[in-house]
Design a protein around this nucleic acid. Structure first.
Lengths: 220, 220, 220, 220
DNA sequence: GATGAATGAGCGTTCATTCAT
DNA sequence: CATGAATGAACGCTCATTCAT
């Protein structure tokens, strides 16, 4: 029945409740695509299927909308994911890193991957956002990975190493992959990019783990 | 009178020749700091010590200025550096990767490191910039590293691996480090960031190489 | 409160529909007064009683506004008038030229008379405008007059003559009168200008007709 | 020897003396072509073969340059021509009007014909120019023609008529022809314009005279 | 609530004018 | 005298935000 957009199937009441989420999704999309300063709030509203005025009924300004987008996509989705990984932190590294890989693969596939671009772009313009990201996402995230590695070292499965460095070696490419998806990746021809993201995530984590494994190398 | 504020010390001609470079440096600074769309051309001019109008004597529009910034800092500086690395591509991996590390350390220290942020931020808005970066920087750069690794494999010094993946594992954190410097890094207190960039560059490259070394692991 | 300054008397919808016409009228006024290049779009808006931004809600640029002004005041008003004259083209020259005279008298009195100044001023800057004027106004207008004269000749009421020249002798002063109204006429004291426009229009047309009448010359 | 522009053949001294005239000629050209407000003083300078700065050595501002252009091309050239016509004012109308026709033909061919466009365009913006034109050109010019006609009437060669109207019928098309040359005429294809200017000038004056001739009309 | 017409501060760009060389 | 680099006021246009309907 509904011609194109399924949402019209939902009664008005449901739509009204879903509005904030729809607005956040539309805002994420536009902000990531064009950059925050270059995004017109009218386009955000249009993509959410409402008028400009309605946007301001839910968020008092473009800047507050940005903050809400970031809080939503980092606070809820990432935190939830972090908890999942934390559950497996005590498992065998093989298993724990597998969980980690699958989490990043889902993150890469999700529109939420765009928030990293927003963080990189807007961190200096909105200190509040930086502070939120650092304290709520970066520090806990790095601590989580750091603990996984420390535990592996403690168990004698991994060789000693500078935790912070290894953590960065592990995570930075995964973040960068998400950035790439929404930056150059979005304007390259399909065939130009030689790397399959999911396989790269697996391979990269394996590469880092391999370089850390105590029993790994076992020379010729 | 005051020695510092004596522009008359620099004769007109001398200033005129230096202007383009000064403007590019100022533009890089402002664009990286605020984002391109959020930068006022007057601020670029002011940081270069000239008036708004003067900027337009050298670059016909803000957009052309951006392209010139990117061409200059990627085309000239990076290309020159790439040549240096290429010279050592045939040396022992240990040496070659050492040259690579030192090149990235210089890049990180230089303001040119900011171009990576511009690329990530503006790629989708300026396809011309993406095309330039991909064909002039990304592809040659990845090919260079790829060849270094392939040569190591051919010599039996490195184990076989998916070149593109390893290349990304090696390079993405270095790029990300540059992004970080101009994004979150610029709004964190000194002590908050646990990682020394130069040491991380060395460690990270070593980590990747170690995971590739045939004889690498060498137990505790 | 004050009856004059009660814009709320006009409901939004009503205003919106009237806006384009109001803006065109204001634009004609300002463009004719100051010249297009010398007109500030803010002044056009102000004379229409709206703000700068509102102008751009209806016309995408100052140049498009100019084109719309010319299309409106020539396309609509002139074309309509042309049809009226055409109806009388077959009547006795006396009658037909009388209709013509009254049409030019109304044109002179109307603000639309200013478009001739715009055409003269802007023809070279906007070829599109020239083309429109030539094909939609000048050529049909001259043809109309030309046919009136040819018919008079065919009937033996007027002596043979170079149609194009006579047409110009007839029309150019009428156009020039409109130019004068908005040029020098607008900055001369009332009494300085000795000529009453309506009477001149009658007299001029009579003068041209008299020189054409077959029964007029009668050689010495 | 001189590749394109003959003036370089003239020694510097001569050029220096000729400068003001060259600047006025260049200014007339550009102002007539683009309109005063739309003309860049740099282009005027360039067409005169000098730099922007030099222009300001001779005329203190763009506005003063405009006034000088108008004073020069109306004051000198027109006044001189007026005197010539005045000499023949007492001759037979046939002769006097012949002199008038040849004067307008020369005016039409000369770049000076462009001043009429400047007058029409800028009269309202520069009252000083209007006043000059009215008192130095328009009034004397109309008086001259008026006297020619009055004399013809007094001699019984021309029938009585409203002098001011006849004068306008005679002159306005000639002025309009000059305007046309620099407005629509400049952007029409050769063949589009059916009228040969010189022949039209002759024909138009003849048409007006014919309608005035005492032996002409002789009603039924 | 929802709309979208209206506002006006803000910024990119131009160009008349100045002045060190 | 002549130059052309530099200036900065001015103006076209955009878009976040408001508010009458």
């Amino acid at each position: 029945m509904s011609p194109a957009a399924a949402p019209s199937a939902a009664p008005r009441q449901r739509r009204k409740e879903a509005r904030p989420q729809e607005l956040l999704a539309a805002a994420l999309e536009v902000f990531v695509e064009k950059g925050f300063a270059n995004s017109r709030s009218e386009e955000v509203a249009a993509r959410a299927g409402v008028s400009k005025g309605t946007l301001y009924l839910y968020y008092p300004s473009k800047e507050e909308l940005l903050k809400a987008v970031i809080r939503h996509y980092l606070g809820d989705e990432v935190a939830a994911g972090g908890a999942e990984i934390a559950q497996h932190a005590d498992d065998d590294p093989e298993v724990a890193f597998g969980v980690l890989a699958r989490w990043w693969q889902r993150m890469y596939d999700s529109p939420a991957s765009g928030v990293f671009k927003l963080i990189v772009t807007e961190a200096r313009n909105f200190p509040e956002i930086s502070a939120f990201y650092v304290s709520e996402v970066m520090v806990p995230g790095e601590r989580l990975i750091g603990q996984m590695i420390e535990r592996g070292i403690a168990r004698g499965q991994l060789r000693p190493a500078t935790i912070a460095h290894v953590t960065h070696s592990l995570l930075l490419p995964l973040v960068m992959l998400c950035l790439h998806k929404h930056a150059l990746g979005a304007c390259m021809h399909e065939a130009e990019d030689m790397v399959d993201p999911h396989r790269f995530i697996d391979d990269h984590i394996a590469l880092v783990v391999r370089s850390l494994r105590i029993d790994a190398p076992l020379p010729k």
